[in-house]
Nucleic acid binder design. Structure first.
Lengths: 238, 238
DNA sequence: CGCTTTGGTGACACTTATGTGACGCGGTCG
DNA sequence: CGACCGCGTCACATAAGTGTCACCAAAGCG
């Protein structure tokens, strides 16, 4: 699922150590050592989790934590704080402020990874249950939310069901008729070409990049057969 | 609501210390020092959280943890484990096995309470000493009071129950039918559109800013599906 | 190549879902 | 008993999504 992590830390050697280990484990890492910048990044980068050192420049960790909790967009963002060993008062204040977990320095990389996974498992069950995923497209069926590479994608009801059906059977090719049965229902009569139109709408929504440019198309057209969700769909363009 | 805690521990003095502090904080405590018995109690007593010592008789803590996770009835039960200081291997195995948090012995009572509250706040939002919270909205269910960013919000009884239901399942989309069942009751017949009207009243009340201007809407409309409480609901406007 | 078939696309008229203000009813409280 | 309050409905306004069509582009095919 490629979770993104925001690392707020100003000790260069620690940054390096942590970043190396996180990336090795398949996380995307965004870094800053500045409290103000951390707030900005938390909104813009939409990380799945924040690792927050208590001792950072510009704003204290606890203040960053408090503000993250206050902003609607980040109120539920999992926060793991880093404190010096034995600094119990900070830990308690941190947990009371809304941090979800903490680590005492020094810590081992293995433990760090284990805790991050534990926190994500707890707080982002969305990244698991009711969760469908394929090649950068993630769908949370209970929250009715779809993202492509982390960015939210707006879909109409039919497009949603259509994509859901593809995600539930990745790689498989469906004829228009099959799609009508599965997505529209067996008893609805509509033109088969209607499927084409919805495929188009779905593509348009899902392949829209941040700046207005196109992302690789993940829906493959199989001439005279139908459509399928396919990671190598881009190949057709070449 | 009084949360019930199952304490699995065989050191008598620790039992006494922990029990005393938990009860002082308003928790109900059930105790055992035996691994097998712990599993039985976890099912029968339906505790809200388990404190699990790694070194106990009859079954190792890790084995108890594994089995709790495997049984459907207890798969989501929050587990806090207790380990000896510096026993890092155990901690990691514990978190990987599915424990939600850990404490290293010795620990202070204050820290214990803070961590338990943190875990319960995360995993059992419904319990929370009557406190529910999400993205700036705070509800005290016992005092029947709601605030948005600190300012008190006036709600009618139905709006209150509606908001409460959303706060108990943040992010999840509910159909009008589900909301009628959950908020109005299974046996009451009212028009589904009634939900819309109450959603409107709730939005109006909750999104009212100090000067009469509008705050970001936290209730997301999911067309043809229902409504959900959603921190990123604002994104829909864009 | 030129023809035929199949898929892509933008426009649009139409259907459906949701937002919203108003109203009347029943209950409560002073 | 009368003012007030919360509630469920309704009617109408607005917004969003849908199915078709006509026309264009690309892909087979002999």
């Amino acid at each position: 699922m490629r979770a993104k992590i925001l690392l707020v830390e100003d000790d260069a050697s620690l940054i390096e150590l942590v970043t190396y280990n996180l990336e090795k484990e398949g996380f995307d890492v965004v870094r800053t050592g500045d409290g103000e910048e951390a707030l900005t990044l938390a909104e813009e980068e939409k990380p799945d989790l924040v690792i927050l050192d208590w001792m950072i420049a510009n704003l204290s960790g606890i203040e960053v934590c408090r503000r993250l909790r206050r902003a609607p967009a980040t109120a539920n963002l999992p926060i793991v704080m880093l404190t010096a060993r034995g600094d119990e008062a900070d830990r308690i204040r941190g947990l009371e402020t809304g941090a979800d977990d903490y680590m005492t320095k020094p810590f081992s990389p293995r433990e760090l990874i284990a805790r991050i996974r534990a926190v994500l498992r707890r707080l982002r069950p969305a990244l698991q249950g009711g969760q469908l995923e394929f090649a950068g497209i993630a769908m949370d069926t209970t929250a009715h939310r779809v993202t492509r590479d982390g960015r939210t994608v707006q879909l109409g009801p039919t497009e949603f069901r259509l994509l859901r059906h593809f995600l539930e059977h990745p790689g498989r090719v469906f004829s228009r008729e099959q799609l009508l049965d599965a997505v529209w229902g067996r008893d609805v009569y509509v033109e088969q070409r209607t499927v084409d139109v919805h495929i188009r709408r779905l593509r348009k929504a899902v392949n829209a990049g941040p700046g207005g440019e196109e992302l690789p198309d993940l829906i493959r057209t199989v001439r005279s057969a139908g459509y399928s969700l396919d990671a190598t769909a881009e190949a057709q363009a070449a």
